[in-house]
Every structure is written in C-alpha cells, then in structure tokens.
C-alpha cells in the first residue's frame, strides 16, 4: 500500500506568517484556549509566538516543490480495528476520577445556552 502522497493542507495552514503578530490576536487565541493571561504573560507570549512564526517563515524560504508532502510523523497508514464491542461497562472506575457525580452522571457547572 502506498503512503499518503497526494493530500496537502490549504490556507491557512500554508501561509506566509511574516506579518507582525498583534497583541489582540494573542488575546484571541488565549480566549479560544480558555487561558487567562496576565499582562506580563501576554507580552512574553507575543514575543515567543512571533519567534515561532518567524521560524516558519524561515522554513517557507526553502523550495519544496519537489519534496513529497509530509502528513504524519509515522510513515504508514490505515491503523484500523474491526467493529467489535471489546469494552465491558466500567462506569464506577471512570466516575471515580470525576470531581463530582450524580448517580452515574458526571456533574458539571451549569451550562447556559
């Protein structure tokens, strides 16, 4: 079986990062990741992320037209399992890790929508 050759990610995955990273975009990413950052952390992370994106720009300078696309660290495909029920209910063990439970439900802070 051949490796996964043909696929590639389109924008925004292959884009030019050379634009300056704003503090606002760091705040946005933090919000999406549910991170609460202090002002100092925001400044530090803005700098660090800029460095990382700068490194991506550096990589983008390479001509990769003739290089096979890299999709996964493992050079193989198709790890599949048969459709069989293999797990026996073990609800108690799973719920033992929950901060709160209610009978066999996980209990979480009220969701408002």
């Amino acid at each position: 079986m051949s490796g996964p050759g043909e696929w590639h990610w389109q924008r925004p995955y292959v884009k030019n990062f050379s634009m300056k990273l704003t503090r606002a975009s760091v705040q946005r990413v933090a919000t999406l990741a549910r991170l609460r950052l202090t002002d100092d952390e925001e400044s530090a992370l803005t700098g660090q992320l800029e460095q990382i994106l700068g490194y991506m720009d550096k990589l983008n300078e390479l001509d990769t037209a003739n290089v096979e696309l890299f999709s996964h660290a493992m050079d193989s495909a198709n790890a599949l399992r048969e459709d069989r029920v293999a797990n026996q209910p073990n609800t108690e063990a799973l719920l033992a890790n929950a901060p709160e439970r209610d009978e066999t439900f996980f209990r979480v802070p009220k969701i408002i929508e």
């Binding site: 459709d83 069989r84 293999a86 797990n87 209910p89 609800t91 799973l94 719920l95 996980f106």
Partner: peptide
C-alpha cells in the same frame, strides 16, 4: 455499527448513563 468509531465501547441505545464509556 456495533462499536464506537474510535474505541470498543458499545453503541447500544438507552442504557444506564455512562455505561458505554471507556477512557
């Protein structure tokens, strides 16, 4: 299917809450 998409838990409908779960 008989089992879930990424694990061997049953897909059976209507069982006790969290009976068909695994790590």
């Amino acid at each position: 299917t008989a089992s879930k998409i990424f694990c061997g838990c049953s897909t059976q409908f209507g069982r006790e809450p969290n009976a068909n779960t695994c790590p």
